[in-house]
């Protein structure tokens, strides 16, 4: 029988996260630069969707932080040394031999760790904007409302780019691994 790679809670989290992040990013960019061409009739709809997705995302991430085995995704020393060299050599087409890694390769680990930091960070910033009077002192620490807004935009740009990279590698790197996020098994 094929090996279990992603247990049900992980897959459930992943597939709930996909539409939530999509809604959050699309409506977020809409709030920055609204255009009806993106399918939303008005800013009010974008705001409602954005805030609803923010609640779901916060709940999802709280569950993730509580339940996920972080040791699987946080890079070890080797991931930043020899494994990373092998990974880069293959991905930069310097060697034809595909290296073997434990569950996640160093690139994945770095990416997931980045998200582990950036998503809660951008959520925090979003809540600061959502309750500006309550979080006045926090907002002051982050350099004011304008700066919070700019930080959210910049983090969202990084998240969007990294998600695009994730989707590309998921589709091209290993069909077995791609299958496992649907079925759980490779």
């Amino acid at each position: 029988m094929a090996k279990l790679r992603h247990p049900l809670p992980v897959r459930l989290f992943h597939w709930l996260l996909v539409p939530t992040m999509l809604v959050e990013l699309v409506t977020g960019f809409q709030l920055t630069n609204f255009s009806p061409r993106w399918g939303l009739r008005n800013v009010s709809s974008a705001k409602k969707l954005h805030f609803a997705a923010a609640y779901v995302l916060t709940a999802l991430f709280a569950a993730y932080l509580y339940g996920r085995n972080k040791a699987e995704i946080v890079p070890e020393r080797r991931d930043l040394g020899s494994r990373l060299k092998k990974f880069l050599a293959y991905e930069l087409f310097l060697t034809p031999k595909k290296p073997e890694f434990p569950k996640y390769n160093p690139g994945q680990k770095l990416l997931y760790s980045l998200w582990l930091v950036l998503i809660p960070f951008v959520l925090l910033l979003g809540w600061l904007l959502y309750f500006p009077r309550f979080f006045q002192k926090w907002i002051h620490l982050f350099g004011g409302l304008s700066n919070v807004r700019r930080l959210i935009y910049l983090v969202s740009v990084v998240l969007t780019a990294s998600i695009a990279g994730h989707v590309y590698f998921a589709l091209t790197n290993s069909v077995a691994h791609l299958k496992s996020i649907f079925t759980g098994r490779t």
């Binding site: 991905e91 740009v157 990084v158 969007t160 780019a161 695009a164 990279g165 590309y168 091209t172």
Partner: peptide, 13 residues
């Protein structure tokens, strides 16, 4: 960032 991402993905593909 968008251009760099598109270029990176395109070249790798």
């Amino acid at each position: 960032t968008g251009v760099a991402t598109a270029l990176g993905i395109g070249l790798h593909l």
